[in-house]
Design a protein around this nucleic acid. Structure first.
Length: 270
DNA sequence: TGATATGTTATCTT
DNA sequence: CAAGATAACATATC
């Protein structure tokens, strides 16, 4: 799924391709997938690209911004003029002056592109918790949000209002890295465990970015050139149920937590 | 064929 | 009242 490392990878990759491009038109093939008046941005230049949590945004001229959320199956595929090819689940197509285009392809139609002015975009971001790479995400902050809750620690990691950018894959991997069981109540973690968890989160996210995100089994995540990420080859627990733990050789277990697949080593994680 | 996968949000419950 | 739990969204795949 597109989580922080996947969206960061798409941002970095797209930046080289579309920064400075001028939008010639936007075709909305599925109404649900685009909110706002797409005609307002015709003729505007893409000044820069940014990411906040799992959100990607393009800053345009005249204080316009396109905010994009891929949800679970969204893809952003860039095609130059000699490589134009229709995809199976096209929802929005952004055409550029140089005849290249960016296709928003989304199987399940949960994802969207929204048009915002600068002020409203800022407002959208205020509800999100700090990025794991922000200074503000320190041991004290993590302790503060965890001691207030009795929910399973994994559910706290997935809460975008508390920490932004972590999804199911990286939550599972970070907890393995920190040797903490996903079902532990958030407020039961010791100071030492909180520190290990913070470092574990940062470690797996950095590794995810290094390998250009993960395209696990049955996943739709793609880079803008259509290729797959490679972090899935480094998973320690995600979708590894029934396989041996790297450290202790016992079998990785799978349970459900908050309706989501949850993977852990019953020996290494306490 | 119905269960399964998942990010976010609306809505219900404790 | 707030926090937590759960359903809903849409669709391909097994």
């Amino acid at each position: 799924m597109p989580e922080l490392p996947e969206v960061e990878t798409i941002k970095n990759s797209l930046e080289k391709k579309i920064k400075g491009n001028i939008i010639s038109s936007i075709e909305v093939l599925k109404k649900k997938s685009f909110r706002g008046n797409q005609n307002k941005v015709w003729g505007l230049e893409i000044l820069s690209l940014g990411r906040r949590g799992k959100n990607l945004y393009f800053k345009l001229e005249k204080e316009n911004n396109l905010l994009i959320h891929l949800k679970m199956t969204g893809q952003l595929i860039y095609q130059t003029k000699n490589k134009i090819e229709d995809l199976k689940h096209q929802r929005v197509v952004i055409n550029f002056n140089d005849k290249s285009r960016l296709v928003f392809n989304d199987l399940r139609i949960f994802g969207w592109i929204k048009l915002f002015n600068n002020k409203d975009l800022e407002k959208e971001f205020t509800i999100l918790g700090p990025e794991p790479f922000f200074k503000e995400f320190n041991d004290g902050y993590l302790k503060k949000i965890l001691t207030r809750s009795r929910r399973a620690i994994k559910l706290s990691l997935l809460d975008q209002k508390k920490i932004s950018g972590i999804g199911n894959i990286y939550a599972n991997e970070a907890l393995y890295q920190a040797k903490i069981l996903p079902i532990r109540p958030s407020n039961s973690l010791t100071d030492k465990e909180i520190k290990k968890l913070r470092l574990g989160i940062i470690k797996v996210l950095r590794k995810g970015i290094k390998y250009k995100g993960s395209t696990a089994a049955d996943e739709n995540y793609r880079l803008p050139d259509g290729s797959k990420g490679q972090y899935q080859t480094h998973f320690k627990v995600y979708q590894k149920n029934g396989k041996k733990c790297h450290q202790c050789k016992k079998l990785i277990k799978k349970i459900k937590l908050g309706g989501r697949g949850t993977f852990y080593c019953p020996v290494c994680q306490k």
